[in-house]
Design a protein around this nucleic acid. Structure first.
Lengths: 237, 237
DNA sequence: CGTAAAATTGATATTTCTCAATGAGAGTGG
DNA sequence: CCACTCTCATTGAGAAATATCAATTTTACG
C-alpha cells in the first residue's frame, strides 16, 4: 500500500539540533530566544512538487527552509511561468507586502520547513531589533539577487544564461554544503527554462552545446563543470 | 556663459516642508525625531544624467528622492545595461549588501535628494524599530516589484512589455501626483529599452504599433492612453 | 519489464536584433 | 529670428537568436 503523506505533514525535532541555524535568520537570536521561537515554529515536510504557498493567497505564515529545494515563481493568467528563485536550507520565505503572497512556492524534491504563524511571529520580532535587522539583511540580499537576475533575463544570451545559472548554483551549494566535483541539479529542465526565461528545448540544446565545447559534462541529475574558467567567463558580471 | 552646477550641489530647505514625507520612510517618525533626522540629512541637487552613486562603489550614503526621476541600473563588463528600476520622490535608495552598492543610480532629469551618511543614519535607525520596520517594508516592496519585473523580462512579448510599462508608470505617477490625461515619460527610449530588455528600435516600433492600434497617442515627452482597457489587457498580471 | 515522464534532437517559424538611413525637435550662434 | 547642428526617435531591410512543432531517445518508476 502506498504511503500517503499529507500536505505539510508535521514532524518533530528540537530547534537546538537545527543544522541550518548559522545560515538562517535564527542566527540573530540568543539561546533563550531560540527556545521561545521554537514554541512558535512547526516543522512540516512536503513531498516533491507539493505546493507550500500560493500567489495571491493571504499570507498567514512564513517559513524557514530546513531541507530540500523549493521553487519560487509567478504565473501569468495564461499559464506562462517565471521562476523568480530557488530556495535552499536557511532561506526565509513568506514576506508579503499587503498581507498576500506575491509568489507561489513549492517543493522541488522532498522539503522540510519550519513554519511560523505570521501573527505570533511578528509579535516575537516586535521587540527583537536584532532579528528584524537580520530579516532586513535577508530581504536586501534577495533584492540584490533579483536585480542580478533582471540583468540575466534582460540582457544575456541563452548560453550566458545557462552558464551563469550553473556557476551561481554551484557557488550557492558550496556556501552551505561541502564542495563536490559534480553539481547536482535537483530541478527539471523546465524549471531551469522558466528560471532563465527560455524554453526547455533551448536549455537542452545549450547544455548539449556546452558539453560539446568541453565546458560541462552532463550527468544524470547534475553536471560537472569541466572548464570552470570558461563557464565563469560566460557568467562574467 | 553656461551656468555650471557641480555634482550634488547642496541646497537648503527645512525638513518640515518636505512634500514627499507621507511616501518616504520618514513617515514612520515623530516630529521630534524628524528634527533630529534633519540634522543628519543634506539636500543635494543633481543635473540631468548626473550619477549619484555607482555599482561596486563603497556605499557611504543612502538617499531619499525628493524631486525628479532617477534610473537604477546594472552594467555588464561589455557595456550592456539593464535598468532595474526608476526611482521617484519618496523612494529610498542605497541599501547595500556588503557595504557596496549593487547598482548604479543617476538622475534622469533634474533631481533633488536628501542624503544621509550611512554611519550616522544607521545609528539613528538603531534605536527606532518603527523606522527599521518601515525601511523593511520598502525593501520588501522593491523585492516584490523586482519579481514582477522578472516575469516581464523573462516571459512577456515586446508589445506586452511596453504596454505593461506604460500602465504601471501611469499608475505609479497617479499614486503620488494628480491624475492627468497624458502620462509624461521623462526617460529616453533607450532607457525604456534597457528597462524592458529590448532594443531602442523595438521599443520605437512597438510604440508606433500601439498608436496605430489606437491604444496610445504618442506625444512629445509622453503618451496618452487612449484605450486603457486594451493596454491593461496587454499588461494583465 | 513495461509504461509514462523527461530530455534530447531536428526542421521550421517567429520574434527580435542589427545595421543603415531618414526624420523631427531642442538648443546654439550668427 | 532663423539656419544649423546634434541628439533622439522612427522606419526599413535583412540577419540572428530563440521559439514552436514534431519525433525520438533516455530515464524513472510501478
Amino acid at each position: 500500500m502506498k504511503k500517503t503523506v499529507v500536505a505539510g505533514q508535521p514532524c518533530s525535532q528540537p530547534c537546538v539540533d537545527c543544522t541550518v541555524r548559522p545560515y538562517a535568520i535564527c542566527a540573530a537570536l540568543e539561546p533563550a530566544e531560540l527556545c521561545e521561537l521554537e514554541q512558535l515554529g512547526q516543522r512540516l515536510q512536503y513531498r516533491p512538487n507539493e505546493p507550500v504557498f500560493t500567489q495571491q493567497e493571504v499570507a498567514t505564515s512564513c517559513y524557514n527552509v530546513l531541507e530540500g529545494v523549493m521553487r519560487l515563481y509567478k504565473l501569468l493568467p495564461d499559464g506562462r511561468r517565471q521562476i523568480v528563485g530557488f530556495a535552499l536550507p536557511g532561506d526565509f520565505l513568506g514576506i508579503a507586502v499587503n498581507g498576500r503572497h506575491g509568489i507561489s512556492a513549492d517543493a522541488v524534491g522532498p522539503v522540510v520547513v519550519c513554519r511560523f504563524i505570521k501573527k505570533s511571529f511578528s509579535r516575537f520580532v516586535e521587540d527583537r531589533p536584532n532579528l528584524l535587522r537580520r530579516i532586513n539583511e535577508f530581504v536586501a540580499r534577495d533584492l540584490t539577487e533579483a536585480q542580478e537576475q533582471m540583468v540575466l533575463l534582460g540582457r544575456r544570451s541563452a548560453e550566458e544564461k545557462v552558464a551563469t545559472f550553473l556557476v551561481k548554483w554551484r557557488d550557492r551549494l558550496a556556501r552551505t554544503g561541502p564542495a563536490t566535483a559534480i553539481t547536482p541539479l535537483p530541478m527539471s529542465r523546465l524549471d531551469i527554462a522558466d528560471y532563465l526565461g527560455l524554453t526547455i528545448e533551448t536549455v537542452s540544446r545549450t547544455f548539449t552545446k556546452l558539453e560539446r565545447d568541453g565546458v560541462i559534462d552532463i550527468i544524470n541529475g547534475g553536471i560537472r563543470l569541466t572548464d570552470p574558467v570558461r563557464a565563469e567567463a560566460l557568467a562574467a558580471a
